[in-house]
Simulated assay, not measured.
Amino acid sequence: SDVFDQVIRECGEHNAQFQALIRKMVEQNLDIETTRNEDHYGAAIHHLSLLRNKRCLMAYMYNRAETIRSFRWKIGPVLPHEIQEKLNFSEKEYFRSHSSAIKSYISEMDIDLTVVCIFPVSFIFWG
């Protein structure tokens, strides 16, 4: 959470610098589409930093979501306290929603997808 908040603050700083450089170019009546000066390149660096941070945060969030989804299959519908305390409110809600969707699908299809297969893989494919 602290690192996430730090990256969000950094994004705010990059955005403020980016906006200031663009404003400066506009105030100087420069065409921001074609002008290639130090302000243009500075704005480009801040923009690319924002994109990098966004990619990193999205990858982090995707990884967390994948981990939370895997908990349902590996642990079951109730998470141990030591895992729950490491999740934020949104992640707990995501787990509950994912569990509910699995439960609904299982009851609709009348098949328990959480049962561990005891047959060797070779038996399934080769009979």
Rank of each mutant, 00 (worst) to 15 (best):
E38N: 12
E38W: 09
E38L: 06
E38V: 12
D39E: 15
H40P: 12
H40V: 13
H40T: 15
H40C: 13
H40R: 14
Y41V: 06
A43L: 01
A43N: 08
A43H: 12
I45E: 12
H46T: 13
H46W: 11
H46M: 11
H46A: 12
H47Y: 08
H47F: 08
H47S: 06
L48T: 11
L48C: 05
L48P: 07
L48V: 11
L51G: 08
L51K: 10
R52F: 03
R52G: 00
N53G: 04
N53F: 03
N53Q: 00
R55T: 10
M58Q: 15
A59G: 07
Y60N: 03
Y60K: 10
Y60Q: 07
Y60S: 04
Y60V: 01
M61Q: 08
M61W: 00
Y62H: 12
N63W: 14
N63R: 15
R64E: 02
R64P: 05
A65Y: 07
E66L: 09
I68W: 03
I68C: 02
R69H: 06
R69T: 04
R69Q: 07
R69M: 01
S70L: 09
S70P: 10
F71K: 02
F71D: 01
R72I: 00
R72F: 06
W73M: 07
W73I: 07
W73L: 04
W73R: 07
K74M: 09
K74W: 10
I75S: 07
G76Y: 09
P77M: 03
V78C: 04
L79G: 10
L79S: 14
H81Q: 13
H81P: 10
H81S: 13
E82G: 08
E82A: 09
E82L: 09
I83C: 04
Q84I: 07
K86M: 05
L87A: 06
L87Y: 00
L87V: 00
N88T: 06
N88C: 02
F89H: 00
S90R: 02
S90W: 00
S90V: 05
E91M: 01
E93V: 03
Y94S: 02
F95G: 03
F95T: 08
F95P: 01
R96C: 05
S97C: 06
S97T: 09
H98P: 01
H98M: 00
S99M: 09
S99R: 03
S99D: 15
S100P: 04
A101G: 14
A101L: 13
I102A: 12
I102Y: 14
I102G: 10
K103Y: 04
K103G: 04
S104Q: 13
S104T: 13
Y105V: 10
Y105P: 05
I106S: 01
S107V: 13
E108F: 06
E108M: 06
D110P: 04
I111H: 09
I111F: 07
D112P: 02
D112H: 01
D112Q: 02
D112C: 00
L113R: 10
L113H: 13
L113C: 11
L113K: 06
T114H: 06
T114C: 04
V115K: 15
V115I: 14
C117K: 14
C117V: 10
F119V: 12
P120G: 14
V121T: 15
V121G: 13
S122P: 10
S122W: 12
F123H: 09
F123V: 11
F123R: 10
